[in-house]
Computed example of a mutant assay.
Amino acid sequence: MKIAILGTGAGARQHAARLSALGHQVIVGTRSPDATLARTEPDMMGTEPFAAFHAVHPELTLVTFAEAADAGELIINGIDGTNAVAALTALPAASLAGKVLIDYAVPYIYQQPVDPQHSWPTPWGEMPRLDPVDTDSLAEQIQRALPDTMVVKTFVTQEQETVVNPGEFGGGDHTMFLAGDHEDAKTAAREILTAYGWNDIADLGALAAARGLEMYAHFHTALGLALGSRFGVKIVR
C-alpha cells in the first residue's frame, strides 16, 4: 500500500521506518523538502536532523505535504497539533477526499505564558497546555474541516516507538485505543496496528472519544516522569 506520512518529527519517522520494513511504499510529506533536508541542528526535542534519518532510509520518498497526500492511499497525520488543521485544509481537497486519515497528534500549545499558580515544570520546560480540550478535540476539528475524509484517532496513548513495536513491553500484551465515525477507517487502523503487533485494540466508539484520548496525554506524561521510563498500558476487563 502507498502510505503518506505527513510530518518529519520523531514519531513520523518511527512509522515511516516500520511501515517501510513491513513492505509498504512510504511517502513522507513536509512543508519544504529542501528546507527539511538542509537542517543541520536537532529539533526542540533533540531529534537529529531529518537528513541523517533519510540517509539510513533512502527508500523513503520526501515530498511536499500536497504531493504526499495526493500519492497516498492512506494518510497518517504527524503534523504538530498547533498547525495540523491549517496545514491539512491548505491541501487540495481532492488529495484527501475518500481516504482514511489516521490522526495521532496531540493539540499541545507550547511556549505559553506561565501562570505561577498553575505551573507544571518538566525536565524540558513548562508542560504545554491542551487546546482544544474537554468539549472538542483536534481529531474532531480535522474531521469537520475535511468532511469527505475518514478520520480515525489512534496511536496517541503511547510513545510512537512503542506504537510501532508493542512487543518491547510485556510481550506486546497491552492495549491500544481508537475512535472514529467511519468503520472503514477503524478497519484500516486495526490492520496497521495488527501488523505492528497489537493484539488488544479497544474501540472507544465515535470520534468524540478522541477528546479523552488526547487529554490522556498529560496523565501519560506524568506516569512517564514518575516511572523514569517508557511503559505499556493494559486494560484488564
Rank of each mutant, 00 (worst) to 15 (best):
A12S: 15
G167C: 05
G46R: 12
L204T: 10
G212V: 13
N77L: 06
A145K: 01
S95P: 06
P49E: 05
P121F: 02
V164H: 03
K99G: 09
F177P: 00
P121G: 07
A68K: 09
H54A: 15
Y104N: 15
L207K: 06
D203G: 14
F155Q: 07
A10C: 10
L213A: 06
G197W: 13
D203N: 12
G23C: 09
G98Q: 13
H57N: 14
T36S: 13
R13F: 09
H182F: 12
I102T: 01
F50W: 07
L91N: 06
R18D: 07
I79P: 00
I27M: 03
D181M: 04
I192D: 01
V100R: 00
T221L: 15
M176R: 07
V114R: 13
F231D: 03
A139C: 04
K2L: 01
D131H: 14
D103K: 00
V236Y: 04
D43S: 09
T157P: 01
H57Q: 13
A12N: 13
G170M: 02
Y216C: 03
A195W: 03
I27W: 05
S20Y: 04
G23L: 08
L193P: 10
G167W: 08
V151D: 08
Q141F: 06
A17D: 02
M127H: 03
V152N: 11
T36Y: 06
D136N: 12
H15K: 09
P33V: 08
D136T: 00
A68I: 11
A52H: 11
H57Y: 15
P42E: 11
T30V: 05
I79D: 04
Y196E: 07
N77H: 03
A90R: 09
L130F: 08
A188P: 05
M127Y: 03
G11D: 08
M45V: 07
E140T: 09
G7P: 05
H182M: 06
T157L: 01
Y108E: 04
Y216R: 06
V233K: 04
R144A: 13
R190K: 15
G197M: 12
I109E: 08
E48K: 13
H182G: 05
P107I: 10
T162N: 12
I5Q: 04
I142S: 09
D70W: 02
A206F: 02
A87D: 14
E159I: 02
I142L: 12
T162H: 09
Y108M: 11
P92S: 01
L74I: 15
L213H: 05
G205T: 11
T89C: 07
A66L: 11
G7D: 07
D184I: 05
I201Y: 10
W198C: 07
A10Q: 14
A94V: 00
M150P: 00
G228R: 03
E41D: 14
M215F: 01
L37V: 02
F65E: 00
V26P: 08
P116S: 08
E191T: 15
Y108Q: 05
E191H: 14
L146K: 00
G125T: 01
